[in-house]
Design a protein around this nucleic acid. Structure first.
Length: 283
DNA sequence: ACACGACCCTGTTCGC
DNA sequence: TGCGAACAGGGTCGTG
């Protein structure tokens, strides 16, 4: 599920209950997710203080006082739940482990952080903070969409000559960090570009238009608390609302929301995954 | 170098 | 109601 806005929403929910706090104990309830969990995960976490919580692309990064960083990727179905805490008006009792609760972290003071991931496409690792940029999962990732390195000239140059569909190019995390199937569809619609168009054959001004489109859709989604598809929720149990603002994703058959456009949203399949676009205003 | 399909895994939804 | 197929927000790997 989680693309950049959902991961950022999780980060914002977790930061106040983690930053500056110490891990009392941790339990890995199985040895692996998509890949093996870090060696001796529980021992390496216990007693560590969480210095801060960052996000890089779709990865959550918890910097620890042990000079290691806990790297977490939520995959398709990963969730992080907070219990044993007073959050706003809600009191969450410390949750008993459920099916697919793979890692449970208890903080000093009683807050419990649970990583739950039915499909186990998620990933977790521990890595020296000072060498984080050389972690295999992080080393090749492209610029953050809100960072200074992501701009019109960069994207035009990066897509020049590429014969892959622009949708695939934007899903490529080496090109730009954090986009997934939903937000690529939404950004392409806002920029008026059809997803099957070859990236290297789109006129430069149109490619450039993708930059503000990507930033706008991600910023709006973050402001809405992400998208709550299926049963996905924020870390504090609240729902995100951005799915109600999708213009094309999941809206096959609906009238195109572009002002003045008479088109109908279509679902197609690209590289085995659903694409949504308006054949009238996306070219 | 690049593009594509298969694969990883479980749960939910849909059509018959 | 039951059952299999299709589908789901992720990324990696091998192949051509």
């Amino acid at each position: 599920m989680p693309e950049l806005p959902e991961v950022e929403t999780v980060r914002r929910g977790l930061e106040p209950v983690l930053a500056g706090r110490t891990i009392a104990a941790a339990v890995a309830r199985r040895p692996d997710l998509r890949r093996p969990l870090p060696e001796r995960l529980a021992e390496r976490l216990a007693g560590a203080r969480v210095i801060g919580l960052r996000r890089r692309s779709k990865y959550l990064l918890a910097d620890l006082s042990t000079d290691e960083t806990l790297i977490v990727h939520l995959g398709m179905s990963g969730r992080i739940l907070i219990s044993g805490a007073v959050l706003g008006r809600h009191v969450h009792p410390q949750a008993a482990p459920q099916t697919h609760d793979h890692v449970v972290i208890d903080m000093e003071g009683g807050v419990r952080i649970t990583f739950n991931d039915p499909r186990r496409f998620g990933t977790m690792d521990l890595w020296p903070t000072a060498a984080l940029g050389r972690h295999p999962l992080l080393a090749g990732i492209g610029p953050e969409p809100f960072g200074n390195d992501f701009h019109e000239d960069y994207l035009v140059a990066r897509l020049r000559g590429r014969r892959t569909p622009v949708k695939a190019a934007l899903l490529d995390q080496r090109v730009v960090a954090g986009l997934g199937n939903i937000y690529v569809a939404e950004a392409l619609h806002r920029a008026g570009i059809a997803p099957w168009r070859l990236a290297g054959r789109i006129a430069a001004p149109r490619v450039a238009a993708l930059v503000p489109a990507i930033r706008a859709v991600l910023a709006e989604a973050i402001a809405a608390g992400g998208s709550s598809l299926r049963d996905y929720r924020q870390a504090d149990g609240e729902l995100g609302y951005f799915q109600h603002a999708f213009r094309v994703y999941g809206r096959a058959g609906a009238p195109c929301p572009t002002a003045g456009c008479t088109g109908t949203v279509r679902r197609t399949v690209q590289a085995g995954r659903s694409s949504f676009h308006c054949p009238v205003c996306q070219r």
